[in-house]
Design a binder for these strands. Sequence first.
DNA 1: TTTCTAACA
DNA 2: TGTTAGTA
Length: 142
Amino acid sequence: MMKEKFSLKAELVIGIGDLSKLTGVSTRQLRYWEERGYIEASAIEKNITRKYNFEVFYKVQAIKKYLDEGFTLAKAAEQADWRKKQVIICKKFVNATFVDVSIADDKKLFGKIDMGYVDKEKTQHLYGIVDEKGSYFEINKE
DNA sequence: TTTCTAACA
DNA sequence: TGTTAGTA
C-alpha cells in the first residue's frame, strides 16, 4: 500500500477567498459557519488569516449542497457529518473486500469488480457488475 | 489586494 | 446574509 506523501488531500491549504470562489459560499458565511462550529480553520501561525484544508473544503461543499436542497444551516451541517460517516463505513467495506476490477468498456466505464469469495472454502466468487443493464451482483460457483 | 472584525441607509 | 467601513 502506497502512502500518500504528496497527495493533494494532505497538502491542500487554501485561504478563505479561494475557498469561497471554489465552493460558491460567501466569505461572510464561511466565517459565520466557523463561529457556529460547523467548520474549522486550521489556525496557521499567529492566525492572522484563516487557512482551510481539504477536509473543510469537502465539508463546505457538502453543507452547501444540503443548503441548496432546502435544509437549514444546522440541519445541512448535521447531514454533512452524517453523510461523511456513512461514506467512511462504505470505504471501509470496499477497501476490505476490493480485489480487482476488470474493465469491459473503458469509454462507457463498464466493468466487473472482483469482490473476492463469499465463503471460506472459496467456492462462491462474488462480482459487482456495472454494465448497460445497471449495477448488480453476480456469484460464480467454482 | 486580500482578510479581519463589527455593525447596519 | 449582504455589504461596508477602516485596518493590517
